[in-house]
Write a protein that binds this DNA or RNA. Sequence first.
DNA 1: CCATATTGCTACGGTGGCGTAGCTTTCACA
DNA 2: TGTGAAAGCTACGCCACCGTAGCAATATGG
Lengths: 205, 205
Amino acid sequence: MSTTRRKYAPRLPPAQRRDQLLDGALALLAEGGFDALTMEAVARRSGVTKPVVYELFANRAEVISGLLAREAERATAQVLEAIPSGLDDRSPKDLYTDGVRAFVHAVVESPDRWRLVLLPPEGTPVEFRRQVELVRAQVTEQVNALADLGLKAMGGPELDAELLGHTMLALAEMSGRLAITDPERFPPDRLVAFVGKIAHFLPNG
Amino acid sequence: MSTTRRKYAPRLPPAQRRDQLLDGALALLAEGGFDALTMEAVARRSGVTKPVVYELFANRAEVISGLLAREAERATAQVLEAIPSGLDDRSPKDLYTDGVRAFVHAVVESPDRWRLVLLPPEGTPVEFRRQVELVRAQVTEQVNALADLGLKAMGGPELDAELLGHTMLALAEMSGRLAITDPERFPPDRLVAFVGKIAHFLPNG
DNA sequence: CCATATTGCTACGGTGGCGTAGCTTTCACA
DNA sequence: TGTGAAAGCTACGCCACCGTAGCAATATGG
């Protein structure tokens, strides 16, 4: 058995290869969870061998954090692009509702990406949790600001501002989760309509 | 070097050993996530050898589902015990608030247990997700019933009943999560007070 | 105090991922 | 067209976990 040499994979500049590998990693994750995300698997998936992967990522942890970093960036870009934060002739309530709308649509567009953020942590690699928490902290800050604004604009702070922020986030995430896990039953419109109503029932925010 | 024989672990009847092993498994999970939960580790952790573990669990999957089954049972018991569902002279809103109170206190009492349910899966073993979803489905049904009750009692269904159920659940889970991840900043009282206010702002439920 | 079931242990062979050393092919450019 | 750097590849040794076969200690009850 002359060990037949494998066909050379097409050559790629590092940056591009890196992206390709992360694509593979994301797919693996979506299919088989974190257990499926190994260096070997990433290599196989992209039709390439292990040393190639090690050329770009020192270890599994780097693949994971690299993946999350990239996806988080794209994810936020996806939302920010959809939400014209410039003109704010809208009330905080409408701003929030519009944000949720943009968010839910982004989720429906790239479920794999968002599954990563919405249905992840604990029991998953530590580095990963760290990263997610970082991103979440940023978002929380923004949302808290909005909540504050709402409370100030509409009267005395009858509600715990910080918790209101968390709640707004939780509502958005719930919508995203439902949009991913049961898209038939929960189309974006239904979700957004509901969130909008809730927002208007609250005394402010 | 005569290979010194290891000291015999105290003998235990199966049921008791089983419980001990699951305790070990839970601790491992809390410390190092799912990657840390291996047959070897479970054995080591309980000062016992692998075949002993295999005597009680055929494989990792069984350990996991066994663990989740036990914890889920204890968890629900913990809540049900704290919430006197018999007397319902209270309004649905108060019922809900009391439920959340009981829930948050249960969480604070056994964080490891609830972390398992609240900050879990995806990217974690499939069997596990299945189990969690089963439990969650049961709870969702209960909560939906409550939401329905609230909506009917307080006037026409201005709100999407099903989504209201999900929201109530999401609020409770958010409270639980915050109670676990930042207990200093979010003591039970603060959380419960907030949830109570929110409930009363909504037109019903 | 001995027989025997029960409980636990040692010791493997097997698999699969990790990470690296060193060789081979491509390809851009002279 | 030929050459050297860049990009890939093969092929290891290592380690951790899996799962099992067969032996050793310990209880119990006759």
